[in-house]
Design a protein around this nucleic acid. Sequence first.
RNA 1: GGAUCCAUGGGGUAGAGGAUAUCCUCUUGGGCUUCGAACCCAAGGACGCGGGUUCGAUUCCCGCUGGGUCCGCCA
Length: 554
Amino acid sequence: MPDINYTLIKTAILEITGLPDALLVEGGEHADLASTVAFSLAKAKKQAPVTIAQELVAELRKRPELAGITIEAKGPYINFIFGKAYVSEVLKAAVKPGYGNLPKKTTRVVLEHTSANPNGPLHVGHIRNSIIGDTLARAFRKAGYPLEVQYYVNDMGRQIAIVAWGFDNLDNKQLDGEKEDAHIARIYIAANQEIQKDESITQQVNILMQLVENGDPATVKKFRKEVSRCLDGFKVTMKDLNVTHDRFVWESDFVRNGNTERIINKLKRMPQAHEDETLYLDLAEFGFENKYVLRRSDGTSVYAARDLAFHAWKGANFDRIIDVLGADHKLIGAQLQCTMKILGEKVPEIVHFEFVSLPEGSMSTRAGKFVSADDLITEIRKRAFDEVTTRRPELPEDERRKIAASVGLAAIRYDIVKVSPEKSTVFDWKEALDFERQSGPYIQYANARACSILEKAGPFNECFDLETEQEIALAKEIARFPGIIEKVVTELRPNILAIYARELADTFNTFYHYEQVLKSEGSIRDRRLTLVKAVQNTLQESLQTLGIDAIQSM
RNA sequence: GGAUCCAUGGGGUAGAGGAUAUCCUCUUGGGCUUCGAACCCAAGGACGCGGGUUCGAUUCCCGCUGGGUCCGCCA
């Protein structure tokens, strides 16, 4: 949404009509902006909306500040079409590096994402979290926010105790070429099978959990070793996905440094607190029917208590807290928010995404039912390499491998980020491996094509005066980019950027097929090259914000 | 049982209180001695059901149906 024109038009309508809302809507193919105020004035003025629209247009046209905008009534709609000066301004901004960067902010943001339990490799559900989180992180940085991205390491949960038990009691050899996280999953799955057979093992696991909570050095060391190994595996996967964290925060630190105990003591004094065998909060007055347990009868803290301590710490160090969590965390997320609020602490904003399941049902690390992100990455690179080899047989192999890695990454990230977080999805190998058409590679291709034109063109004089319908349509699409970045960070919906990037590529492809660039001459060639430069820059900025390589050749 | 999210062409998806509902796939028909066909153009096909709010609802509210998720001294 073009800010200056939007504001001018809105102000003018409000002044003329005296209404509280200018009822501005997207003009679609009719206009750049439209207003439906004529409808709402109809009853008060006792006139037909069509008549009112015509009168308003006459008034609006008298306004000097709207001189550059074509204003016309079409039936009851008032349409605004922006002029050439506007388009020139857009182009001038869009050819510059960093187009779409928003003014620097001072609000310190902390964003937590992925935070998968270190008991097995990241699977295709976890990476939905990673990719939504990482894309949001990139958008926040582009929007000018100082940002820290954190991974919360759950290193003292029951699953880790089960892993530790498995390493102590089962055949724990790492297989040849087996990645650390895959190794841990294998032991974890085996240990769970043993527990199924022999319930007394649960008792041994409980003891391990008590030991770790009390800081028994040997047990702490054991837990930490396996958790670190698993994280090493995660880091490889995340590097392949171009996902980065600034800091890994360990859950056990919040027990060790006393923060958990401190927040529990504070919570004990709350009217909602109850202490019998366990310590829990009754949040019924806020609509939660179950107990919010903080401490077990054996005195150990549960996840919720440590999570509260973690969030209190985040609140002390940052102005805005954002967590990316799966739909399974909706209830505990809401309880966390509720508790932080009654404590008078900063309340985190939570971005929930719905589950990724397999055609045969839900994924489960414990049951060994999952598709690992590593397998997906391996497969897609293989396919991308074949595709690159078919299209570009003349390139040396290492270059084809590099392109395949970028294309594969684009396919995975785009496929995941393009879908609204609130939609649950079913993982499908065939669709995941299809990187053609409505995909990341499609957008990369548009960028590569624009790069190729610019390279062939050589030096040219920038010209910002566009003429044809296709040129102007493309410039207006380019104009939307900064507003898209703004929208992503205010609505916390990275899919908006994914859809925009695809639409920009669509518009460029249509332009490309309608208008000659290199074969045109003089100022026509100059202005079209300028436009190609602007769209290339915008595609590149969009792709980079999506965490996708804007490769120049593919 | 309670809570919560989702429901758009055959399949997958976007969108928004307003003008002819987006894109991919699919089917059919066109376009490469070309600025890169991982592309473009044309045609076909969809807002689950019932109420309500509104000048106007596919979009907001309620109910129903179907599906996901959650309701543990797990995390």
